[in-house]
Amino acid sequence: MTDTLNNDTAGAGVNDAGYATFTAGGFTFRRDEYFATIEWPTGSHQLAIDSFLRSMQRDVAWGFFYGIVNFDEVFGTMNHYGNVDMFAGRFNEAYRKAEVDYSENFDHDVLIECFKAILSDWTNEGYDPFAAPMETGSAFGPSKGTNDAAVTRRRVVADRMVGVPGDEQIRSDETGFPINRGFEDVPQDEPIVRAEAGYEDEVCSFNLFAYLSRSDVTWNPSVVSACKESLYCPTTEEYILPVIHGNDRVEWFVQLSDEIQWDVEDRDTGAKRARVVMKAGDVAAMPADIRHQGYSPKRSMLLVWENGSPRIPEMIAKGEATVHPVDF
């Protein structure tokens, strides 16, 4: 295993299917009509291209997120907040025992530009990696156009709260956010707000459930309110969380509607630890030493609650971050 800072990324050549091949350090990325193939000095791996693009989309949109983004049981990235490990087999016990796991460290900005280039070149016209499978076209086949408007969506990040004047605004038909087919029965009434003159910027409220019913993406938390570093990051979920998220800190979920089931595994070995069934109103923590993947059979509303404190990466590095949410 290597542990070098390697800023050598490049896209080169076009294959018979019309797709460019990319390299990042010792990793090479190729795609054909059905698969993404990843090669590194000690091995190679294939993922179905639709699954690969959905994972890549989240890794790019979330800036490598908190902790580990496993595309599957072999390939992924680990965020060190400023630099990033890209690995193969690092969190797979069999690969590690066989000593064929591989990892390289990259500057954050360098690797994300490489990933953005892959996402742009490999996403065909009509395919939206953020969308539920039943709401988008096919990822398969030879290269055909692009869908940069979808893969470069702006992530919503409210400073105080959605709906506050000057902050992120509520969604509507007029702003291009129709009600999703899975939420047509969600009431769209807005709260009654009576602000005295001069207090219009502070007396604020909005319908979060209606806002979420108009989300055009899945498995993509965005910030709707911020209590200092405490961030409400709700999202709408359908089908399978494209990545297996490996935690480096405790994360909390509040199920706002419907049901999601979570597979929870040991972060380092993949050994099964639990299955968490969450229904409307349920609250659950994900410990800092697990990885998890969610399944949502119907489009559902999930409140992901994150602590964005800049103290946490240092606490993680020093081993001071708690593994379990609370002691009792």
């Binding site: 630890r273 639990a274 968490v276 229904k279 109103g281 349920d282 609250v283 923590a285």
Partner: peptide, 23 residues
């Protein structure tokens, strides 16, 4: 309201601090 649950395979349910706001 209907609560979900943690089905344990090899872990301690306390680590998930599982509750329900309506409950």
């Amino acid at each position: 309201f209907e609560k979900g649950r943690v089905d344990i395979v090899d872990d301690d349910p306390k680590y998930y601090a599982f509750s329900n706001v309506y409950d």
